[in-house]
């Protein structure tokens, strides 16, 4: 944590022209980084500088910059979303770095998340997992009154704990095996806590797990690294829940 208002940093940024390019690190140095800046604002400044020299800016994904859309995906100094726990890269501020630090920035790396350019990757595999079963089948207009089925506050809160996943993929990026279990488990666990969607519970877990396999993610070894980097702190109990749901689906 820096006490200074202005620091300078050296950046080692992964540059890759396209999916088939081998890629390489490039070094940049930035003087005069205000420590109240967010990490992405620091990259904005880098890109402004590059463009002022008519050079190619670094491509990175971002949108809300509030830690909720799940767009940003940077591996900062070896950790997805950077050194601050429970903080998406866009919510990381430069005050967590020191004057003269060298900061490495890499993209998510996984077969299922191919690099598009520089730090931008393709995460559509997550959409396909969701399409396989991450929903309650209810057609518009068919719903009973919202209070018709009471749900205990404990269950509702617990469902919410799992529902807050922002779909960023940091769990995959951090996992030594590139497993998507935390993401998939979070959805399965959320819906397992609610009476809605109970009729298709078994089908759901089976289909989502199958799709997860197909996408080329790795197995889960219970390293819990995913939970450690998850910006919203999804617990690996979601993975355990996915497994019990799966067993229930298997024996019925």
């Amino acid at each position: 944590m820096s006490n200074k208002d202005i620091i300078s940093v050296n950046l080692k940024v992964w540059r890759q022209d396209g999916p088939n390019d081998k890629g390489r690190f490039e070094d940049y140095s930035l003087k005069e980084v205000n420590t109240h800046m967010s990490f992405l604002e620091m990259l904005d400044v880098l890109n402004e500088n590059l463009m002022k020299e008519q050079k190619q800016p670094v491509e990175f994904d971002h949108d809300c910059r509030e830690g909720i859309c799940g767009s940003c995906n940077l591996v900062i100094n070896g950790i997805p979303h950077g050194p601050e726990a429970r903080t998406a890269a866009c919510q990381l501020h430069m005050r967590h770095f020191n004057d003269g630090d060298t900061i490495t920035i890499e993209p998510w790396r996984a077969t299922a998340f191919p690099v598009i350019k520089d730090l931008v990757v393709d995460r559509n595999a997550f959409d396909r997992i969701m399409a396989a079963g991450g929903y309650v089948t209810v057609a518009t207009g068919n719903a009973p009154d919202a209070n018709a089925i009471p749900i205990s506050k404990i269950d509702a809160d617990s469902a919410m704990d799992y529902a807050v996943c922002i779909g960023c993929g940091a769990c995959v990026a951090a996992c030594p095996n590139s497993s998507a279990s935390l993401f998939t488990g979070a959805k399965v666990a959320q819906l397992s806590k609610l009476p809605q969607g109970a009729p298709e519970r078994k089908q759901r877990v089976k289909a989502m797990v199958e799709q997860m396999d197909k996408e080329g993610f790795g197995d889960c070894s219970n390293f819990a690294e995913c939970e450690a980097v998850c910006p919203v702190g999804i617990s690996i109990t979601s993975i355990a829940t996915m497994r019990t749901e799966y067993v229930k689906a298997m024996f019925s």
Partner: peptide
């Protein structure tokens, strides 16, 4: 699942096992 590995990789610690 990850043919190209990170050049720098570190554990976040905390709940990580």
């Amino acid at each position: 699942a990850r043919p190209v590995d990170y050049k720098y990789y570190k554990s976040q610690g905390g709940p990580s096992k």
